[in-house]
């Protein structure tokens, strides 16, 4: 029982990684252009240069360790990475983890070199795929720029750094592991009044719940996988109405959240920096700057906060049918 519960948690964590690419898709456009503009180098010199970058930035034992064998952070060798995926990850970092964004400390060329080195650590998998994918780069870019397209075609999406293989082996190796969500358990979780930081603090389903985020009543028509992705990787697709905005007051205070409404003199936002969200009203004359951010106001930690079973329950509740784990892949 205990080991099963442990594996379920592992799988849940893996899901975070599985959907992470979509979090970063929105900002991938300039990266692709950058790497395309770099001077061509031979494959070996590219890898060698990448090794130097890697040694200086990634190889500490509490990170990915020498040779990508893994330390405090996931191992990087013998994995199924794509160049695009690694580029995004290195450039933007992974919010909520120890993985920093290197876009300000490494040049685009250095990142490309580093990616080449990491791919070389997986000669049977990643390197071959890298070659294959470099030939269809244009196509991949189109896919990564469209999160819906990427999400709907799991076979073509890049593999994450941690555990997608583990997820798949859980499912493939053990056919009896037929985890299924429960609509009522999902409803209880969604509306649990003892928890101030759950879904209903922001979302409505069937006229109950908060008004900060989208009404999820209509989400039932979407595929389970897409619903799950919107829970664990909310940054992937943001409806304009619910885009995060940041208000910087003349006193220098910064507030982020979702716009509630505005009139000639006042703007109100739902401050989502803590939950339950707090509606704050600002005089426009008090605001030095109001800007739109390319992130979702929704917390990005639900994959680690909820177990896989709970995530399945939530998806089941939103679908109004008991969804099985297999439907997510």
């Amino acid at each position: 029982m205990e080991s099963r519960s442990g594996s379920v948690k592992m799988v849940a964590r893996a899901l975070a990684a599985l959907f992470l690419p979509f979090t970063l898709c929105l900002s991938s456009f300039d990266l692709s252009l950058g790497s395309r503009a770099a001077e061509p180098q031979s494959a070996d010199s590219q890898i060698e240069a990448g090794n130097r970058v890697y040694l200086g930035s990634c190889s500490m034992t509490y990170c990915h360790a020498a040779g990508g064998i893994g330390g405090g952070a996931p191992k990087l060798r013998d994995r199924e990475f794509t160049a695009e995926y690694l580029t995004l990850l290195i450039t933007e970092g992974v919010p909520g983890t120890g993985m920093p964004a290197f876009k300000n400390s490494l040049s685009k060329q250095q990142i490309e070199q580093c990616v080449a080195y990491i791919l070389s650590l997986s000669p049977k998998k990643g390197a071959a795929k890298a070659k294959e994918q470099s030939q269809s780069r244009a196509q991949s870019e189109a896919q990564t720029l469209d999160p819906h397209l990427s999400g709907a075609t799991p076979k073509t999406e890049p593999a994450p750094p941690d555990a997608p293989d583990r997820v798949k082996s859980e499912v493939a190796v053990n056919d009896s592991f037929d985890l299924r969500g429960d609509v009522e358990a999902g409803r209880a979780l969604f509306f649990d009044s003892a928890e101030t930081q759950n879904c209903r603090a922001c979302h409505t389903v069937q006229n109950r719940g908060g008004r900060v985020g989208p009404d999820l009543t209509e989400i039932a028509g979407k595929p389970p996988r897409e619903i799950l992705r919107s829970i664990v990787a909310p940054h992937a697709a943001i409806e304009e109405r619910y885009a995060t905005i940041m208000i910087t007051t003349r006193a220098g205070e910064k507030f982020t959240g979702v716009k509630r409404d505005e009139n000639e003199t006042t703007i109100r936002i739902y401050d989502t920096s803590t939950l339950p969200p707090v509606s704050r009203a600002f005089l426009k004359s008090e605001a030095a700057k109001i800007e739109r951010l390319n992130t979702s106001a929704m917390p990005a930690d639900y994959a680690s906060k909820y177990s896989l079973k709970q995530l399945l329950d939530l998806v089941s509740f939103l679908k109004s049918s008991n969804v099985s784990l297999k439907e997510l892949f």
Binding site: F191, S193, R208, G209, G210, T266, P276, S279, A281, L283
Partner: peptide, 15 residues
């Protein structure tokens, strides 16, 4: 009398 903040305790329709 200007509003500064407003927070929902729990959806009245739920509780």
């Amino acid at each position: 009398g200007r509003e500064i903040w407003d927070v929902e305790v729990e959806d009245v329709r739920q509780c």
